[in-house]
Design a binder for these strands. Structure first.
Lengths: 251, 251
DNA sequence: GGGGAGAGATGCCGC
DNA sequence: GCGGCATTTCTCCCC
């Protein structure tokens, strides 16, 4: 165990990626409080101070400390202790180590950053570049003007000169998307000094929940079935937007 | 490399936890699409089919496949390939392996589940058990009746017999919390056949954003500063609820 | 499977 | 730091 502590200390100093499987017991205190009894888990410490504890199942770590945390190794009467602290958030974690089943530490060489396609931003860009996707004669305003009004995805004028606010969702739109759209339409109407009713609101997404569609119609908004680029428009689980099988959920 | 593939296949068959550091190139296609160029990353495969790819920084995996995914090893002309598929979601991932720097596989023994204290649910329980935290004479309805009305955190009558709907937030409440409360109050008023104005709405949280407080007052709701159990009420970053330094954000 | 909502959500950007 | 918002959010629960 003493050898392992020395190794971890050395690796931390060098800023290496540390991975080990350990029988441990974990206490956390910060935004909430948690306790995890004795068991074997995978622990990862990254050079930026991130610490992750993974159990045998699930994509989420059971415990973690965010980037910027500092980890110290202390010797206890019974076992080794990892004390982690994040000064910025005031969070603390204590890992009591009973046994280490394996440990590896390395300095990975990796200069690449991931490229993701098909985000909501790409969808908005796509509509700006192909306004006809919304309807004939739709004229989006430039991005610069757009930013002035805040977080609105797409913003422009229709063929009859009416203001159009579009909220994009890369996935099935729910009622919160409609609420978001309602806020934006209200804000724009107020800024421009025109009636809310005269501003068109459009949800653009590959699909929409029945409840969201109910709200949308009630608000006088419109729906346009559009998928983000690089994503096929019809997905498993897509439902006809007009099927109301859960009318209880309304409002 | 052949030895490593054999080992991984064997470990997968046994349902072990597999951890390896590999120089790899990753493509993902599913809910979105992504590409990650060559570099060394930590890869974790769990017995439930979860696959995580971690770079040197950050708490989030750069790529991942959710539980229920199936992983197959194929030999390519240039290198080994991990093909992962999730039938339920239609997602696919391809990891091209150029080099494996280390690999470990084990079957961890772990029968413990984490206990978290200080959640929103605990906060609601605390209020049910100590109604005086809200105000003198507040009488919460029993949990059984509560569930009947849906997702409302706490629900009851005040000393004057008026209906009270309480939305708890374990953290600083934002304007969405107020919108949530507004929906609940509306639903309850409709179900009970009384005016919305006659139902009291209360946000209970350790703090509230200025914008949320603005909405709250506009709706005629109330705010009660309450922290979840096991969490100190005054946190770093707490702001006076009445400081409006960002009036632009309103609506 | 859809819908609603919490999470120790994280992460990004803007003010 | 606060605020707003997307995320391949994940996770849980209920219908």
């Amino acid at each position: 165990m003493k050898k392992i502590i020395t190794r971890i200390r050395e690796s931390l100093r060098k800023g290496e990626l540390i991975v080990f499987l350990a029988e441990c017991q974990i206490n956390y205190k910060g935004r909430a409080e948690s306790r995890l009894e004795r068991g074997e888990r995978l622990i990862i410490i990254k050079k930026d101070g991130t610490l992750l504890v993974h159990q045998q199942e699930g994509s989420q770590p059971v415990n973690y400390m965010k980037r910027g945390s500092v980890h110290k190794f202390v010797r206890d009467e019974c076992c080794a202790l990892i004390k982690s602290r994040n000064a910025a958030t005031g969070e603390e974690m204590k890992i009591r180590l009973f046994n280490v089943l394996f440990i590896e530490s390395r300095m990975p060489v990796d200069n690449s950053r991931i490229t993701v396609m098909g985000t909501e931003r790409h969808m908005a860009d796509m509509i700006y570049n192909n306004p006809g996707l919304i309807e004939e004669g739709f004229k989006p305003l430039s991005r610069e003007e757009h930013t002035k009004y805040g977080f609105i995805d797409v913003f422009g004028y229709d063929r009859r000169g009416r203001l159009v606010v579009i909220e994009c969702k890369r996935d099935r739109a729910d009622f919160r998307a409609v609420e978001q759209l309602r806020r934006y339409v209200g804000r724009i109407a107020r800024l421009k000094g025109i009636e809310k009713k005269k501003v068109r609101g459009i949800i653009a997404s590959p699909s929409i929940s029945s409840n969201a569609y109910y709200f949308l119609e009630k608000e006088g908004f419109e729906y346009k079935g559009i998928s983000p680029p690089h994503k096929s428009p019809s997905l498993p689980g897509q439902k006809k937007i007009t099927s109301f099988n859960n009318s209880n959920a309304h409002s």
